[in-house]
Amino acid sequence: MWTKEFQCGGHESALLDCRSSGSARNTCSPGKAVGLTCSESVRLEGGGSRCAGTLELKYQGEWRPAFGSDWTLKKAADVCRELDCGSAVSVGRRESSDRPVWDIWSYCVRSGSALRDCVTSESSSYILDLTCSDSVRLVGGSSLCSGRLEVKSDQSNQWWSSVCEADFDQQDAEVVCRELGCGAPSVLQGALYGEVEAPMWTKEFQCGGHESALLDCRSSGSARNTCSPGKAVGLTCSEPVRLVGGDSRCAGTLELKHNGEWRPVIGSDWTLKEAAVTCRRLDCGSAVSVEWRKELSDRSVWMISYDCLPSRFALRDCAKSRSSSDILHLTCSGLQEAEAGQTGEH
């Protein structure tokens, strides 16, 4: 064990520049050795709040915009957590003047490494813009659109609070799903995503359902400062996917709404196994066929990351902007099953 007590003022550039005094300790109780986690030097600049804007990273003493290929909401969620913001709502690149940037290697980030451990110095005319939700998030779910609801009253407040089911209803859920960029609420039920760990929110939400953010809703004092086990709000928002141009709502070109825009979906290695997940989410039975169709010219599409399809993540969490003339056409069994049922009735 170190035999001196450090007495830093906090401004020194190196630990051994600090004053120190002799310590009475030459050993340390189990579990009492210092463990330290330093936050990443990342920020979002130029947006409407500290949780939105151009992603910048401080590396080798210099702040620069960050850029990298294949950024998805799944990856952006790590930055939102680092900034103690809510969920990742949108991420995209935009054109700027050519300037030095920190290029972030996507395969390195996927391995769980910190952003600063994955950078190289480059020059680029593209930069990353990221929007996180300021004050709401869903935790413990299988995607960014499912989990136990937690709310943060303001950015100076260090605590995220869970919400009791009795203080939250369907109209409140509609606002949360909209604020997170997800589809309409599909499941609202306590105990879906683990027991309450966060403090309890002490107000009852009274949303009309049209508000753009949960904290824009009216609220009133609640008698609860605790919540019975299993009664914290668990929420699943539907995934904004659809099939268009087919004979029914259960057949057609697969489209995804992401960053506010509906586009066709493409992705490598789509089989009936992956298609079956989408059919279930659309309440359309099982997958009957999946095929690629080529259009006359390229159009904007959402490319689904290859590592997303075999996982439980939502498609929107893994979407990247691309151009392609290929589109995915999917047929589910939903209409056929319904017709079979009607025939049986006759």
Rank of each mutant, 00 (worst) to 15 (best):
G46H: 06
S321C: 08
G246Y: 00
L215E: 07
T27R: 13
V288A: 01
H210W: 14
R110H: 14
A251H: 02
S20W: 15
R242F: 06
R263P: 01
L138T: 02
A251V: 01
C217H: 08
R224W: 11
G46F: 06
W102Q: 04
E195T: 11
S305A: 15
N26R: 11
G141R: 01
E195M: 10
D167M: 07
A184Y: 11
L309M: 11
E122L: 10
L15G: 14
D247K: 10
W270R: 02
T131A: 13
G147N: 06
W201I: 06
E339H: 06
D317I: 02
V241I: 15
C250P: 00
E150N: 04
K203A: 14
V119D: 00
T331F: 01
S289H: 09
S162E: 06
A338D: 03
G47E: 04
D154E: 15
D247G: 14
A184V: 13
M200G: 12
S97E: 14
K58T: 09
S238P: 03
S23V: 03
A198L: 09
Y126A: 05
S96V: 13
C308H: 07
W2N: 13
A314W: 01
L57N: 02
G46K: 03
A14W: 13
I104T: 07
P185W: 00
C279M: 02
G35S: 15
Q336A: 12
E95W: 13
G48D: 15
C250T: 00
C132I: 01
G61M: 05
E239L: 04
L130M: 06
E261V: 14
K203L: 12
E339L: 13
G181W: 01
G181R: 00
Q158D: 13
C145L: 07
T236S: 08
A319Q: 03
R137Y: 11
G245A: 05
E179G: 04
S124I: 05
V34E: 12
A24N: 12
S135F: 15
G61E: 08
C237T: 03
E345S: 11
S13M: 13
I327A: 05
I127N: 08
P264S: 10
R81N: 12
G31M: 04
F168V: 06
L55I: 05
Q206Y: 07
M303L: 15
P30E: 12
W2Y: 15
K32L: 12
E211W: 05
W159G: 12
C279R: 00
I327E: 07
R148A: 07
L254W: 00
L235W: 02
C318Q: 07
C164Q: 03
L330K: 00
A76N: 01
G252M: 10
